[in-house]
Design a protein around this nucleic acid. Structure first.
Length: 852
RNA sequence: GCCCGAGUGGCGGAACGGUAGACGCAGGGGAUUCAAAAUCCUCCGCCCUGACGGGUGUGCGAGUUCGAAUCUCGCCUCGGGCACCA
C-alpha cells in the first residue's frame, strides 16, 4: 500500500470545507421554487470552550440540515450566541477586565473550535445577543410590548445578601447563604418589571394540543406548569366583625372538614396584625429568612403562628375557626389564604398535629376503616368514596363529582363562586445586574416612568465600569444614569435594571430570519422562513425557555413583528438528552465547594485524587456545566482523529433523547471504522470498470434496504440506529463479490447515506467514485419498494409463550398453512409428545403460539 | 416537597404487545507476521451439558394477556425542572 492510500482526515476535512465555502453551499436563500426548511439548535452560551454536549447537539442539527438539503429543501441553519449573563460578570470580578471582552473572546475561541466540525451553518447570519444591534432591537420590541399593555411594574421578592448589600440569583444562594459573603440570605421586596404572560395562560395551555410534533413529556410539563385549576373562591367572616378573609380552594368538597384558616406571612392581614403584635412580626421576619425558590419554601419545616383571630364557618356561624399565619402558604398563588383540611391533606395534617388543631374526615374509604387521626386519607380524585360530611351530593361519589357539586351548591347559596385560576405567574424580567439588555425607560420626577424614544435606541451599556464592588455597576456609574426626560426634557434618570437573559433567547429564532434588519424582524423574510421546522435542544429547557418563547411569539404577532401563523414558532421539537459527567469537588477553608476539571483528577480504584494527592469527592453523573467544571473538551478527539470521527462517535450508540454518561472509550474504534470504509472504497475504485462478479442482485437489495432504513431512522431522529444500519451495509459491501459496476454504485450510495454524519469523508468517497459534483448538493437516494420485498418469512413457534423453534414459510402463507407447517415441525411434534394442542394462535408474519 | 423522565449482557444500546440482546465497544480463540501494530476469520447474557439440548434472564413486587422489556398498579434507584444558572 502506498503512503498516500490512507484515510487522512487532517488533509480531507479542510479541503472539503473550502469547497463548500467556495460553492456557498450553506448560505440560506429565499427560493420560491423550493420548499423551505428551518432547522435550529438552541444557541450556546459562550462559556469559553465547547464541550462534548455541544458537539452532540450541533451534529444532530447538522444531520437534519444536510439531510433536508439533500431532500431538496432551501435550508436555513443559523448560529448565534446567548451572550449576556452572570458568568461574564463573575469573570470580571475574579480576573478583572470587562464582561464584553471576556464574552467576545470566548465567542472567538468557541467559533474556532466549532468551525472544524464542518457544520452546515450559514455563518453570515451569526450574531451575539450582547451586540448593541441585537439588544437595540430587543429594546424596540420591549417598547412595543409596553405600548401594547404587556409590561408593568410591581413588587416582588428577591434574594437579598445583607452583607454584600446585593441581590443574588438562586444559584448564588447555597444552603440559605450568600455564595461570596456567607451571610444568611433574606427575602426582600423590590419594585420590578414584569411581562404579562398571564394574559395568555389559557391560550398557551389550549394551544399545547396543537403542538403535535413536540414530545409528550414537554407538553405535559408545560401544561402542569401553567396549572389550570377550577375551585371555589369565598370569604370567611371575622368574628370581630372587622371584615373577612378571602380564600381560594380547589377542594370545596372538604369544606365540612375545615380546621383552621391559614394565611401567608406576606398577606395584608398578617402585615396589619404584625404592626401591633411584635411576636407576629418576629415570626414574619423568621419566615423571610432563606432563599426564594419553591424548593426551599416547600421543603422548609412547616411553621405557624396563631393570630388569635377567629372566623366563622360559612355554613354555620357558631362554628369558629382560628386564623394562623403559616410559612408554607404562598402569597403568589390564589388569594394567599387557604382553609386547612387535615383529614385529607398531608401538609395540613402535619400542621394540625403539630399545633393540636382538630382533624375531621369528610369522606372515608368505601367498606374499610380509616384512622383519620393517624394519617390523612388522600385517594385519587377519580376514586369513589363514602361521604361522611358531604353537602348536596350522593353518599357514594368521587371527589371530582363532589367538587363540581360543592361549587354549584355554594354558588346557589350565594356563599362564593366557582373560579378558574392558573398557577402560571407573570414573568419578572428585572435583573439588578450590568451584563444584560438595559430596560429602555427613564424615571422623571415630573412625568414618572417614561419610555425612551425609539430613535435614541439602543440604550447602550457604558464601557467604563468596574466590578471591584458587589452590586450593579449601572447604579453607581457617575454619569450613565443621567439623561433628559424623553417627554418633558428635564433632567431625569435611566432605569438601571437590565433584562433577564431569557428575554434575549425568546426571539432570537425570529431575528435569524433577518439578522441585520433595522426593525426587530423583516416581515417578508419572517413570512418566508418562519416557523422553525425543527427545533433541537436540551430537555432542561422544557418549561421556561420554550414557554417564554411561545409567549414572545404571541407578543411579537400582537405588535406586528411576526405573522399570525408564527404564534407557535416551533413546529417540531426534539429534546436531546444531556451529556453527563461526574463532578469532582473539594472544600475550601470555609467549607464551600471548590470544583475541579476532569483532567485535573486522577482516578484510582473508584477514588479521585488531585495532583497534590488530595482526595476529591465524586458526585456521579450530573449535567455538564461550566460552573461545576465537569465538562469534557472534544478538541483533543477532533485533533487526533478528525471531525468526522467525533461526529460519528457522538451520533452512534446512544439514542439522542437519552442522557449519556460521557466516556471517550471507543473514539479510536470509530476512527478505525471510518478508515476501513475509506480503504474499502479505495479497493472498489481500483476495480476495472468491466469486471464482472456474482451477487449483483443481493447487493442491490442490500443497498435499497439500507436506503430505506437510513432514511426512516434519520426521519425518526434515531441516528444511532441509522449508524447501525450503515455498519450492516458496509459489512455487506465489503464481503460482496459483485461486479465493479454494482459495487461502485453501492459505494456511491454508501457515501450519500453517510454524508449527513460524516460529510467530509463522504465527499471524498463520492469524488473518487466519480460522483457528480458535491455529495452535499446531490439529491437523496430513493429506495425501490420492489427491491425491499422478501419472499419468505421466518416465524418463531412458541409453546405457551416460550420460544421452542422457528419455521420458514412463504410471506403470503395463510393462517391455516402456517398452522399446518408449525404442527408438522419436528420440534413441535416432539414437544407435543402426542397431545393435541388446546389452541394454536397464528399471527401472520409474526408468531405461532401453541397453547397446551 | 411538587411536576416530568429513565433503568435491558462486562460497556453503549436494539426489539409495531409476538424469536430479548440487532449494531458497536471491550474481551477470548485462531490466521497472517521473525515479532509487534494493522488487517482478516471466529466465539461471546448467566447456569447445567462433551454435544444435542434444557433452565434462567430486561431495577423490585403484584396484575392484565395465548404471549409483557413493552400495558396497569405499588415500590426502589438515578437524572431533569421548580420561575434570578443558561
Amino acid at each position: 500500500m502506498s503512503s498516500e492510500a490512507r484515510y487522512q482526515p487532517q488533509e480531507i476535512e479542510p479541503r472539503w470545507q473550502a469547497a463548500w465555502d467556495a460553492e456557498g453551499c450553506f448560505t440560506a436563500r429565499m427560493d420560491p421554487a423550493r420548499p423551505k426548511y428551518y432547522v435550529l439548535e438552541m444557541f450556546p452560551y459562550p462559556s469559553g470552550r465547547i464541550h462534548i454536549g455541544h458537539v452532540r447537539n450541533y451534529t444532530m442539527g447538522d444531520v437534519v440540515a444536510r439531510y433536508k438539503k439533500a431532500q431538496g429543501f432551501s435550508v436555513l441553519h443559523p448560529m448565534g450566541w446567548d451572550a449576556f449573563g452572570m458568568p461574564a460578570e463573575n469573570a470580571a470580578m475574579a480576573e478583572g477586565g470587562h464582561p464584553g471582552t471576556w464574552t467576545y473572546n470566548n465567542i472567538k475561541v468557541m467559533k474556532g473550535q466549532m468551525k472544524p466540525l464542518g457544520l452546515s451553518i450559514d455563518w453570515s447570519r451569526e450574531f451575539a445577543t450582547c451586540d448593541p444591534e441585537y439588544y437595540g432591537q430587543q429594546q424596540a420590541l420591549f417598547l412595543d410590548m409596553m405600548q401594547a399593555g404587556l409590561v408593568y411594574r410591581k413588587n416582588a421578592v428577591v434574594n437579598w445578601d445583607p452583607v454584600d448589600m446585593t441581590v443574588l440569583a438562586n444559584e448564588q444562594v447555597i444552603d440559605g447563604k450568600g455564595w461570596r459573603s456567607g451571610a444568611e440570605v433574606e427575602r426582600r421586596e423590590l419594585t420590578q418589571w414584569f411581562f404579562k404572560i398571564s394574559d395568555y395562560s389559557g391560550e398557551l395551555l389550549d394551544a399545547i394540543d396543537g403542538l403535535k410534533d413536540w414530545p409528550e413529556k414537554v407538553r405535559l410539563m408545560q401544561a402542569n406548569w401553567i396549572g389550570k385549576s377550577r375551585g371555589l373562591q369565598f370569604s370567611f367572616q371575622r368574628t370581630d366583625g372587622q371584615g373577612a378573609v378571602e380564600v381560594y380552594t380547589t377542594r370545596p368538597d372538604t369544606l365540612m372538614g375545615a380546621s383552621f384558616v391559614g394565611i401567608s406571612p406576606d398577606h395584608p392581614l398578617a402585615r396589619e396584625l404584625a404592626a401591633t403584635n411584635p411576636a407576629l412580626q418576629a415570626f414574619r421576619e423568621e419566615c423571610a429568612k432563606g432563599g426564594t425558590t419553591a424548593e426551599e419554601l416547600e421543603t422548609a419545616e412547616k411553621k405557624g403562628f396563631d393570630t388569635g383571630l377567629t372566623v366563622k364557618h360559612p355554613f354555620d356561624s357558631t362554628w369558629e375557626l382560628p386564623v394562623w399565619v403559616a410559612n408554607f402558604i404562598l402569597m403568589d398563588y390564589g388569594t394567599g389564604a387557604i382553609f386547612g383540611c387535615p383529614g385529607h391533606d398531608q401538609r395540613d395534617h402535619d400542621f394540625a398535629r403539630k399545633y393540636g388543631l382538630p382533624i375531621i374526615d369528610t369522606f372515608l374509604p368505601t367498606g374499610q376503616d380509616w384512622d383519620i387521626q393517624a394519617a390523612p386519607y388522600v385517594p385519587m380524585k377519580s376514586e369513589t368514596v363514602r361521604w361522611t360530611r358531604g353537602f348536596g351530593w350522593p353518599e357514594d361519589a368521587t371527589a371530582d363529582a363532589a367538587i363540581a357539586a360543592a361549587i354549584a351548591e355554594c354558588e346557589s347559596r350565594g356563599l362564593g363562586e366557582g373560579v378558574t385560576k392558573f398557577r402560571l405567574r407573570d414573568w419578572g424580567l428585572s435583573r439588578q445586574r450590568y451584563w444584560g439588555c438595559p430596560i429602555p425607560v427613564v424615571h422623571c420626577d415630573t412625568c414618572g416612568v417614561v419610555p425612551e424614544k425609539k430613535e435614541n435606541l439602543p440604550v447602550r451599556l457604558p464601557e467604563d465600569v468596574s466590578f471591584d464592588k458587589p452590586g450593579n455597576p449601572l447604579d453607581r456609574h457617575p454619569t450613565w444614569r443621567d439623561c433628559p426626560c424623553p417627554s418633558c426634557g428635564k433632567p431625569a434618570r435611566r432605569e438601571t435594571d437590565t433584562m433577564d437573559t431569557f428575554v434575549d433567547s425568546s426571539w432570537y429564532f425570529a431575528r435569524f430570519t433577518a439578522p441585520h434588519a433595522a426593525t426587530p424582524t423583516n416581515l417578508a423574510e419572517a413570512d418566508y422562513w418562519m416557523n422553525v421546522d425543527q427545533y433541537i435542544g436540551g430537555i432542561e429547557h422544557a418549561i421556561l425557555h420554550l414557554l417564554y418563547s411561545r409567549f414572545f411569539a404571541r407578543a411579537m404577532h400582537r405588535t406586528g413583528h411576526l405573522p399570525a401563523r408564527s404564534i407557535e414558532p416551533f413546529n417540531a421539537l426534539f429534546t436531546q438528552g444531556m451529556v453527563t459527567h461526574a463532578i469532582y469537588q473539594t472544600r475550601d477553608d470555609k467549607g464551600r465547594a471548590v470544583y475541579h476539571f476532569p483532567e485535573e483528577v486522577e482516578l484510582r480504584d473508584g477514588s479521585g485524587f488531585l495532583k497534590d494527592g488530595t482526595e476529591v469527592e465524586i458526585i456521579p453523573s450530573a449535567k455538564m456545566s461550566k460552573s461545576k467544571r465537569n465538562v469534557v473538551d472534544p478538541v483533543a478527539i477532533i485533533d487526533q482523529f478528525g471531525a468526522d470521527t467525533a461526529r460519528w462517535f457522538v451520533m452512534s450508540d446512544s439514542p439522542p433523547e437519552r442522557d449519556v454518561e460521557w466516556t471517550a472509550a471507543g473514539a479510536e474504534a470509530t476512527h478505525k471504522h471510518l478508515a476501513r470504509v475509506w480503504s474499502l472504497i479505495d479497493r472498489i475504485v481500483a476495480l476495472p470498470a468491466d469486471q464482472t462478479g456474482e451477487g449483483d442482485e443481493d447487493l442491490a437489495r442490500a443497498m435499497h434496504r439500507a436506503i430505506a432504513d437510513v432514511t426512516a431512522t434519520i426521519e425518526g431522529f434515531a441516528f444511532n440506529k441509522a449508524i447501525a444500519k450503515l455498519y450492516e451495509f458496509t459489512n455487506t459491501l465489503s464481503r460482496s463479490k459483485a461486479s465493479a459496476k454494482a459495487q461502485k454504485q453501492a459505494g456511491r450510495v454508501l457515501a450519500q447515506l453517510m454524508a449527513p454524519m460524516t460529510p467530509h469523508l463522504a465527499e471524498d468517497l463520492w469524488h473518487r467514485l466519480g460522483g457528480d459534483g458535491l455529495v452535499t448538493l446531490a439529491p437523496w437516494p430513493k429506495a425501490d419498494p420492489a427491491m425491499l420485498v422478501e419472499d419468505t418469512v421466518t416465524l418463531a413457534v412458541q409453546f405457551n409463550g416460550k420460544r421452542r423453534t422457528e419455521i420458514t414459510v412463504a410471506k403470503d402463507a395463510s393462517k391455516e398453512e402456517v398452522e399446518k407447517a408449525a404442527l408438522a415441525d419436528e420440534a413441535v411434534i416432539r414437544g407435543l409428545a402426542g397431545a393435541t394442542p388446546r389452541k394454536v394462535i397464528v399471527v401472520p408474519g409474526r408468531i405461532v403460539n401453541v397453547v397446551v
